[in-house]
């Protein structure tokens, strides 16, 4: 079970719909990394990603009364942040982000030595760069599927796409990534 799934309990949903601030704070705490992660992978800029992630939670807060519970809360939040990111990317109203500047996140590995760090950093840089170079439509699908673990149906619901479209876009995104990451493949 993924992070935040426990938050879909009926009592918790009732508290959220009733405007319980404490419940909403728990929701944010449970889903903050997912929402921020999607924004960061999509936009490639930490500051912009936080802005979009905050906006996603603000919109969720305003729309909680309309949340029918047809999908999981996490899927609902993914849908909101994904659309916000796509709108932001489509608007062109963005600060110039140096390619790969922000997305090269160095995540220290307490178990690995300097060599391992270097090797992983190189792989991760290649991965992030490869993802960032995907088209927005393919990128959002591969992020939601391969990084966040959503099902095809959830992705189709979140992005309001046909299931076949999701399948097709995901396959093309993976083929692109396979080509870009060929040197890391066995």
């Amino acid at each position: 079970m993924r992070e935040g799934d426990a938050a879909d309990a009926p009592q918790f949903l009732e508290r959220l719909r009733a405007g319980d601030a404490r419940a909403f704070e728990e929701l944010v705490a449970a889903h903050q990394h997912r929402v921020f992660g999607v924004a960061l992978r999509m936009l490639g800029n930490a500051a912009e990603a936080e802005e979009i992630a905050q906006e996603a939670f603000l919109r969720a807060h305003r729309s909680l009364a309309e949340f029918r519970g047809d999908s999981r809360l996490s899927t609902w939040l993914y849908a909101i942040v994904s659309r916000l990111c796509l709108n932001r990317l489509a608007s062109g109203d963005r600060k110039a982000v140096a390619h790969g500047e922000e997305i090269l996140l160095r995540i220290a590995d307490p178990c690995g030595g300097p060599e391992a760090d270097t090797e992983r950093s190189e792989l991760e840089s290649a991965l992030h760069r490869a993802i960032a170079e995907l088209s927005e439509e393919r990128r959002v699908v591969v992020i939601l599927r391969d990084l966040e673990g959503l099902s095809y149906e959830e992705i189709a619901s979140a992005l309001s796409l046909e299931l076949g479209t999701v399948r097709s876009r995901l396959h093309r995104a993976r083929m692109d990534l396979k080509d870009k990451l060929e040197r890391f493949l066995p």
Binding site: V28, G37, L105, E124, L147, L177
Partner: peptide
């Protein structure tokens, strides 16, 4: 390829993100 993607570390929201959201909410 999907194996490589599975190795990508999850990004973490910056410290204080929840408080900032709650302040705006």
């Amino acid at each position: 390829t999907t194996g490589l993607l599975a190795r990508v570390e999850r990004a973490r929201a910056p410290v204080g993100f929840v408080d900032r959201v709650m302040t705006r909410v």
